[in-house]
């Protein structure tokens, strides 16, 4: 393998550090750099077919298609305990260079809520692939045209409006909305998956949802649901289409809310520096492929590739936000 790769090494790339090197899609790499010797376990904290699973398998297929890794990545599903099983499994794999994990915000929510002995600091941060927006949706047949109209109605009738969401992650978002706006209380109904939540909105079993764009986009296009506000500081101006017409919560309600779903990649605890560099490079190459870029655009994901210290500070901020909201609303398990 090594000799095979070295044939492709061009003179310029040898000089540059490994990270920059790996932007190049061709398999050109410093011959001394670390490469996986065994198949890599790609841990998914969800069952087959869940949101993270779909994304993980998508990444694996891109890696296969463009031959970005000398050894295959193998998806390993660990759906138990709301992701707790996966988090603890990866934590056990100390210094294993062949285990990485993809995780959404359950990384923060599950440990706080269930009290398992886990913190994201146990793992080795590799990179952030994308951030998913949260949007406040109502049924298209409802009379509420703006977020203000809707929330005023909710204020007038505490617990009289049903907010649907995925398990506990969207409950955090709901509470965030409640505290930022003030004076309102939703009747929160948890569901198992985001797609299910949006269909329940279409069927009018709930009054509103805080779905990610990908979960509701097709129903929006079909005129069944209506977006009222983006829970972010800026409008979704980076994608084509109608997304940028949705106002932010600041514009619609005067409430400054930013809550994003991280789509992050972590490595096993204590992963060595050269190993981290390999995976960072790998994810960066994946991120640059046209397939991944199209996926970002179709689902209105915030697609900046973040790694290193910037990634850690983002994690830190998100962690603080979760601790704050979840403590305030009694969602943290008492030890």
């Amino acid at each position: 393998m090594v000799s095979d790769v070295s044939k492709h090494v061009s003179r310029t790339t040898v000089v540059i550090i490994a990270l920059v090197l790996s932007i190049v899609a061709a398999p050109s790499r410093d011959a001394a750099a670390w490469e996986p010797r065994n198949p890599v376990e790609f841990v998914v904290p969800a069952g087959t077919g869940g949101g993270s699973d779909v994304l993980a398998r998508f990444l694996v297929s891109i890696i296969d298609k463009h031959k970005l890794s000398p050894k295959p990545l193998v998806v390993v599903n660990k759906p138990g305990g709301g992701g707790a099983e996966a988090l603890l499994y990866t934590k056990e794999k100390k210094e294993d260079p062949h285990t990485i994990m993809i995780t959404p915000n359950l990384l923060f929510v599950t440990p706080l809520h269930t009290g398992i002995p886990f913190s994201w600091k146990d793992l080795t941060p590799i990179s952030l692939l994308a951030e998913d927006l949260f949007i406040l949706w109502v049924n298209a047949e409802s009379p509420y045209m703006t977020a203000k109209q809707y929330l005023d109605a909710v204020k007038a009738k505490p617990l009289g409006f049903k907010m649907g969401g995925t398990a506990q992650e969207d409950q955090v978002v709901t509470h965030l909305l409640e505290s930022a706006v003030g004076g309102l209380q939703f009747n929160y109904v948890p569901f198992k998956g985001g797609g299910e939540v949006c269909v329940n909105l279409v069927g009018k079993h709930v009054d509103s949802t805080v779905n990610n764009p990908s979960e509701c986009v097709s129903h929006w296009k079909a005129g069944k649901v209506r977006p009222l506000a983006v829970l972010d500081r800026e409008r979704a101006t980076w994608v084509e289409g109608q997304w940028k017409d949705i106002p932010t919560t600041k514009e619609a309600l005067g409430a400054d809310i930013q809550y994003l779903m991280l789509r992050a990649i972590f490595g096993a605890p204590g992963m060595k520096k050269d190993v981290v560099e390999f995976y960072t490079g790998l994810m960066k190459k994946v991120h640059a492929t046209p397939e991944f870029q199209k996926y970002l655009a179709d689902n209105a994901l915030k697609g900046s590739f973040v790694t290193g210290a910037e990634f850690v500070s983002k994690l830190d901020a998100a962690d603080k936000q979760h601790v704050e909201v979840m403590t305030k609303h009694g969602m943290v398990k008492k030890k």
Partner: peptide, 24 residues
């Protein structure tokens, strides 16, 4: 866009990757 079974869920993932948006 909601799968009625686990297998359908995987196929749903496939649809997204083939660049199709399941839905009405």
């Amino acid at each position: 866009g909601i799968p009625g079974s686990a297998t359908a869920a995987v196929i749903l993932g496939g649809l997204l990757i083939w660049g199709l948006q399941p839905g009405p």
